[in-house]
């Protein structure tokens, strides 16, 4: 008799592979919020995020018979969603390739920090306001796609380096390099933004 495999997250692998609707509904309930958030951060648009959300779960349902349970269900869903989002962006903006190549070469040195201004001392209410939230989102939008997705998975969705590497099918080294580059770039953008809000600056 075959043993029922219960996945790390408490789902039945067999039920999911066999297309069990109730089990699939549990997965959708558990992870749709995360996938929607990923879509919102990547695409910055509710309609596009909803499209990615639907496509991800439609693809997942059809692919579950081939899911082997070696990675977490969530990591596997993130992989589908990340692919969908990246394909969507490439289709929408085919001219981003030139932007990409500027940052993509892994062997290239990290960009040097240009602005050395300490804005950490700003009061919390000035650091976390609605305006700042908007600026944080706008800054993410300026990242090249390949490091944007890494930053979102690692620093917003909270995946580990290993899970991010699995989801994007890249090496852990590449995850680290792209994450670092994204953070340095965001630091520059936030510094440019906050420097004007420091006391004593014109």
């Amino acid at each position: 008799m075959s043993k029922l495999v219960e996945l790390e997250e408490g789902f039945s692998l067999e039920a999911l592979q066999n297309g069990d609707q109730a089990e699939f509904a549990r997965v959708v309930e558990a992870y749709s919020g995360y996938i929607y958030r990923l879509g919102m951060k990547m695409l910055q648009n509710p309609q596009d995020a909803e499209d990615i959300l639907q496509e991800t779960f439609i693809k997942a349902f059809h692919a579950f018979p081939r899911f082997d349970g070696r990675s977490k269900v969530s990591t596997w869903l993130y992989r589908i969603a990340a692919n969908e989002a990246l394909m969507f962006l490439r289709k929408k903006r085919p001219d981003t390739v030139s932007m990409e190549t500027r940052y993509q070469d892994e062997s290239e040195d990290d960009p040097e920090p240009l602005q050395i201004i300490d804005w950490c001392c700003l009061p919390e209410e000035e650091l976390i306001s609605d305006e700042v939230r908007r600026h944080l989102d706008e800054s993410i939008e300026q990242l090249p796609e390949s490091s944007k997705i890494v930053f979102i998975l690692r620093d917003i969705e909270g995946l580990s380096t290993q899970e991010t590497a699995e989801a994007l099918e890249i090496s852990e080294m590449a995850v680290k390099t792209r994450l670092h580059r994204a953070r340095l770039q965001l630091r520059e953008l936030l510094t440019a933004y906050f420097r004007e809000r420091l006391p004593g600056t014109i």
């Binding site: 958030r37 804005w119 917003i156 340095l184 965001l186």
Partner: peptide, 27 residues
Amino acid sequence: DTLKKTVYLYHETAAQPSIPSDVRVRL
């Protein structure tokens, strides 16, 4: 310090993983 704060701000302001109810119904 500012790199640390940058990461912190994104953590702090990340929206809860939820979807609007109409989006959930359509899904």
